[in-house]
Simulated scan of single mutants.
Amino acid sequence: MKEIRTQDAVGHILCHDITQIIKDQKKGVLFKKGHIVREEDIPALLSVGKEHLFVWEKKEGILHENEAAETLYKISAGEHMHGSDIKEGKIELIADCDGVLKIRRDALLKVNSLGEMMIASRHGDFPIRKGDKIAGTRIIPLVIEKKKMDRAEEVAGEEPIFSILPFKNKKAGIVTTGSEVKNGLIKDTFTPVLKDKLEEYACPVMGQTTPGDDRKQITADILNFIKEGADLVICSGGMSVDPDDRTPGAIKDTGADIVTYGAPVLPGAMLLLAYYKDGERTVPILGLPGCVMYAKRTVFDLILPRVMADDPIRAEEIAAYGEGGLCLNCASCTFPNCGFGK
């Protein structure tokens, strides 16, 4: 930091706020700390009595906070997002489309561990809508060594830390199991719930079957939907371990790869997730337990966005739901702005 004549300050960085007071009109900040003095700023500075200023000396290898913020944006932003204007070393990332937010968590941790810089984001693997704020970045000090920003680029790697997988246009087939539904003994209250949730992602239902508890027919109905072009098949009910619950076995009989039968999530512990290879297509098959029919939020709400974005879900990711997998059934549901699934 050094003191220089105001007329000589062009291109230098202010070390303190400059206050302007106009009687009965204004009292506030004229220029903020970190502002780079421009030629047109000189008259205004002199008008508030600032004939001398304390400024940072521009040295080789030292970056202003706004220059360094550009680096944070560069390593953070992927496709389908844009940055806000830079202000005081800060840039925000804004979504340009609807989709699922993906985060390279290892890279995020490495950058935040360097010190003097930060990136704060919302949770990954959750839906994001166009216009949503994804993350905020900031350089902590007024100036920072260029070599530190070079290190940030190095630890972040070649891929951006954040990316968005846009939702795909899909159509679903629903296989409603249970002899009680097939025989008309009870009203099907499961399918309306599924349709409502699918509508959130503009996913039409191409058809519904009611094979009862016939294991072979359940398998046939699933395969028939796939043959007809379904991008997603949902089997509702029949997911417990009772002898007459045939859905898990029927899904297995399709030849699909079972990712998991069971999830550390309440409600939704009896989830089954599988993927069926149909030539070059991969079709998700979901076996949903009865809780999806009556609980406000369940495991279905955690995995559906990823299914709709063609984001493959691994068994270890399902296992990781154990922490945060307990829905508290709050009187006023604020999901996804809560801890469920996080």
Rank of each mutant, 00 (worst) to 15 (best):
E88Y: 15
C338T: 08
C338L: 07
K227M: 12
V265I: 12
Y276S: 02
A274P: 03
I285C: 04
I218S: 06
I251A: 07
G212Q: 08
K130D: 15
D301T: 00
T137N: 04
R151W: 05
D278H: 14
I18H: 11
G262H: 06
A274R: 01
I222H: 01
L46R: 13
V283N: 01
G184L: 13
R129I: 03
L185D: 12
L45P: 01
A295V: 08
C338F: 09
F300W: 12
T6L: 07
G99C: 03
E280A: 10
I13T: 13
S121N: 10
M239C: 05
L266V: 15
G136S: 11
C235H: 04
C338P: 08
T209L: 01
C203L: 10
A172L: 09
D253Q: 11
T210W: 02
I86W: 04
I313W: 13
D106N: 15
T210I: 07
F31P: 00
D41W: 09
S163L: 09
S121D: 02
R105V: 13
K147S: 14
P160F: 07
I186Y: 07
G249A: 10
E317N: 07
T282V: 14
I251P: 03
K148D: 12
E159F: 12
S240T: 09
L328A: 08
P160H: 11
A269D: 07
I13R: 10
L194N: 06
L223W: 03
E228R: 14
H52F: 12
S240G: 02
I226E: 12
I222W: 06
I103R: 01
Y201I: 02
A319F: 06
I186G: 08
T298F: 01
I251C: 07
V175W: 05
G325C: 02
T191W: 04
L101S: 02
E159C: 06
I94V: 15
Q25K: 15
